[in-house]
Design a protein around this nucleic acid. Structure first.
Length: 246
DNA sequence: GTTGGATTACGGTCACGATA
DNA sequence: TATCGTGACCGTAATCCAAC
């Protein structure tokens, strides 16, 4: 089984350059894919490093440009996502493989970009290892706390070669971290893409507590106490559910 | 069978920390 | 700056069970 360590750099909407694409459709557009293929002995057998010309957010968000050092000019002559994705699929090959990523965001956004470009997700592997999750476990971090890649590299005494926030080098560092923490408890999982926006519950509206308490203040001609506010809020919710209606 | 209290399961919200 | 995942917390609904 081969390991594909990959990382992505994204561009996102720039508030100063509005476009016609709904942010929920494609909040992050991939502008760089970096990857390393390792064999079962964790030896690098091939690499992949390509920039992607954006077609949605054509101007690089200043924040993204600052941390990635990727400029609009650098991407002007690059291929679009569709072409680069096909080359990436060729790169990973047909062998048995597992994707290794630093956090599940790179899986989610990769699939979202594939779907947005009307490409097939059938050929995209679903077997993955979240190296960030296992590294957090390795360092026995409290639940909900995820270690950053740079911190992990420092704590594991991995030699710095390049700056972070470069997809290829971040993939490289992810592989180096993995080599340090690998153990028998780390097994591949199956990734299921969920479009969060599509599953958001829309029937429940938020209570305007400010207006609600203001109304009570007016009715009783005084400020409601914190305890009273709590009771009012609970009673209001009970009324909405009609659970005590006869 | 009905009632009412206790427990459990589920889902929504929020804060936090991570990503680019 | 925008977005998302995770876990804690909270409230509601469903379920269980004892008492009658």
């Amino acid at each position: 089984m081969n390991y594909i360590f990959y990382d992505l750099e994204f561009n996102q909407n720039n508030i100063n350059t509005p476009n016609n694409i709904s942010i929920s459709q494609l909040p992050f557009e991939i502008i760089q894919i970096g990857a390393l293929k390792l064999n079962e002995s964790l030896e690098v057998i091939s690499t992949f490093n390509e920039f992607v010309r954006p077609t949605v957010y054509n101007d690089i968000n200043p924040y993204v440009e600052n941390i990635t050092k990727i400029t609009k000019d650098m991407l002007a002559k690059c291929d679009t996502f569709t072409i680069t994705y096909n080359r990436f699929i060729e790169f990973i090959g047909n062998e048995d493989l597992v994707l290794c990523v630093w956090g599940k965001a790179d899986l989610r956004e990769f699939i979202r970009n594939i779907k947005f470009n009307n490409l097939s997700t059938e050929i995209f592997p679903t077997k993955y290892i979240d190296v960030q999750k296992h590294t957090s476990k390795f360092f026995k971090l409290s639940k909900g706390t995820q270690i950053g890649l740079k911190t992990a590299v420092e704590l594991l005494n991995i030699e710095f070669q390049e700056n972070f926030h470069n997809a290829f080098y971040d993939a490289f560092y992810t592989a180096e971290v993995f080599k340090k923490i690998i153990n028998d408890n780390i097994v591949p999982e199956n990734y299921i893409y969920v479009n969060r926006n599509a599953t958001k519950n829309t029937y429940r509206n938020k209570i305007d507590t400010v207006s609600l308490f203001k109304q009570f203040n007016k009715m009783y001609n005084r400020e409601m106490s914190e305890e009273e506010k709590s009771i009012i809020k609970t009673a209001y919710n009970m009324g909405r559910t009609k659970q005590f209606m006869k």
